[in-house]
């Protein structure tokens, strides 16, 4: 008798989320199988990688990941257009890090203008992120959501301390919303419940269980993502069925391993290659754990992960 591999089928399904509009729109999620187990059920959409840009010069990024954007990163709209046209980005993530009180402390009005400029330059979808300052993100993201009204963007991140304001802003302006909790699966579920109880459609949510880089707690993110996905599929937990985000670049390009020069640590090899490999490895791990949306920085790391996706789908 021929061997028939057993199939694991699930009652639950991850919501498919479409962002952007017109020809540039992309959809991710929608699967009823564990990541890349396409032989067991439906997995209609590929994971999407968004290129990260920011509203101020990336002087806080390590040199090796600043380099690919030399000459364009001085202006967010130019930078966005470069990612779209030259790097063939499928989506852009604009981080309004310049609004952080400890940085340039730019105003919500400044943020709104940046959003408008970037949107005017783009056909692909835009993800609009605050500076991860719980208080300041509220007014900044309200202004940004209004400036992007009806462009079907993703707004984020709503956290326990500010979700009401940010959810209302996303709802009023027809955007999708990232709900972020700090590596705690039960709080992640609770935040999704609280947001949907405000009347926000759960099929417009994206869960961010919080990223961490390889060597810096990646296994925690991995386990939380894995458990969320199992709850969504095997337990048919409706509150855990939004797609998941891996905000990879920001966490990878601040650790020692992506920056320490080869001259100091010759046994670690080329700094540039090491950084790219670190970002690509972290991103790949999260894809396998269940992330459907990634935010990344280095073009060569993105290229490497796209190749992995191509092989696995």
């Amino acid at each position: 008798m021929a061997f028939t591999p057993p199939k694991e089928t699930h009652a639950g399904k991850v919501y498919a989320v479409t962002i952007g509009s017109g020809e540039g729109a992309v959809t991710f999620g929608g699967e009823n199988v564990l990541p890349f187990n396409t032989f067991e059920g439906a997995s209609p959409h590929r994971p999407v990688i968004a290129y990260e840009i920011q509203d101020v010069l990336p002087s806080d990024w390590p040199e090796n990941v600043q380099k690919p954007y030399e000459g364009v990163s001085g202006d967010p709209a130019t930078w966005a257009r470069f990612c779209q046209n030259t790097l063939k980005a499928k989506a852009i993530a604009l981080r309004l890090v310049g609004t952080h009180p400890d940085r340039e402390n730019r105003s919500p009005e400044d943020a709104a203008k940046t959003v408008r400029d970037v949107l005017a330059a783009l056909n692909v979808p835009l993800i609009i992120l605050g500076s991860n300052h719980v208080e300041k993100d509220a007014p900044v993201l309200i202004a940004a959501a209004e400036a992007a009204k009806d462009r079907n963007c993703i707004i984020g991140k709503a956290q326990e301390g500010n979700y009401k304001t940010i959810t209302a802003a996303a709802m009023a302006n027809n955007h999708k919303l990232i709900a972020m909790s700090e590596l705690d699966i039960n709080l992640s579920k609770q935040l999704n419940i609280l947001i949907t109880q405000m009347g926000f459609d759960k099929e417009r949510l994206i869960t961010d269980p919080m990223c961490s880089a390889l060597g810096y707690g990646l296994e925690y993110t991995y386990s939380v993502m894995e458990r969320i996905r199992l709850a969504a599929l095997a337990q048919n937990d409706l509150t855990m069925q939004p797609p998941m985000l891996g905000d990879v670049g920001m966490y990878v390009w601040k650790i020692k391993e992506t920056q320490a020069p080869e001259s100091e640590l010759p046994q670690w090899g080329s700094t540039e290659e090491r950084g790219i490999a670190w970002e690509a490895t972290t991103a790949t791990a999260l894809l396998v754990a269940g992330a459907e949306l990634l935010i990344m920085r280095h073009p060569m790391a993105v290229e490497a992960v796209e190749k992995v996706i191509e092989e696995l789908v």
């Binding site: 039960n186 579920k189 419940i193 458990r227 709850a231 337990q235 937990d237 855990m240």
Partner: peptide
């Protein structure tokens, strides 16, 4: 453990 705990 058949449903994931959340306060709500």
């Amino acid at each position: 453990g058949r449903t994931l705990y959340a306060h709500s």
